[in-house]
Write a protein that binds this DNA or RNA. Structure first.
Length: 209
DNA sequence: AGCACGATTAACT
DNA sequence: GTTAATCGTGCTC
């Protein structure tokens, strides 16, 4: 009897769904960005799981950070970043691309972590169809590619990642040791003044762990 | 009301 | 290496 239960559960999902809780996000952006590496981004869509291991992130923190959208203060776009942590901040750029961030730090303090790259693990057929024409290595190795593969757009701006019934959330995973992690300047801030242009708030896995 | 630019990507030479 | 695509956002007039 018991083996049947275990087998059916295993077939349904490699891991149980266990959304990361809010205190994890209510901390400094660079800490959250570093510790998200190795954790799993999960999207529940029409009863199916699409997921992957987070392997690249960037921290954006405070109105003083001239690389952060919050340099403009509270606006309709940045309002979510001033809200409680553990929510999604999804924005549109270059006329065609969506970007997924997690709101971090305390409510009232604007900060977020951009999810830049993942290794797909569940929903590969769905991901492949949404990234048609591209080889697997190109499926989710960029922030806009992740949103395309996971079907994430403005509908997700502001959604809570920490409720038991969340359809977008983070699961704990196998942490990467510091020896696997490269730290460097954030990408795409070419018009941003120093020190913000070069501050090492980008974290990524250099070799497959 | 108009403008310059963007936390990018894919397709080029 | 370069560049077009394409439009929301925030800033200036």
């Amino acid at each position: 009897m018991l083996p049947y239960i275990v087998i059916s559960f295993t077939i349904t999902r490699m891991q149980p769904s266990a959304p990361l809780s809010r205190p994890f996000f209510a901390r400094p952006a660079v800490h959250v960005a570093r510790e998200l590496l190795g954790m799993r981004l999960v999207r529940l869509e029409e009863g199916k799981h699409i997921s992957g291991v987070i392997i690249e992130t960037e921290a954006y923190s405070s109105e003083q950070d001239l690389g952060c959208h919050c340099r403009a203060g509270r606006t309709p776009r940045t309002q979510v970043m001033y809200g409680p942590p553990g929510h999604a901040y999804v924005y549109f750029t270059y006329g065609m691309h969506w970007m997924l961030n997690f709101v971090v730090e305390a409510e009232g303090f604007p900060a977020a972590v951009l999810i830049r790259s993942i290794q797909p693990s569940e929903g590969l057929a769905t991901i492949a169809s949404r990234r048609s024409g591209q080889p697997p290595a190109q499926w989710t190795n960029g922030p806009a590619k992740i949103c395309q593969a996971f079907n994430i757009d403005k509908k997700f701006n502001g959604v809570d990642l920490c409720t038991p019934d969340a359809v977008l959330f983070v699961e704990p995973g196998d942490p990467f040791p510091d020896s696997c992690v490269t730290v460097g300047p954030r990408v795409g801030l070419n018009n941003v003044p120093e020190p913000w242009k070069s501050i090492p708030w980008r974290f990524y896995i250099r070799a497959k762990g």
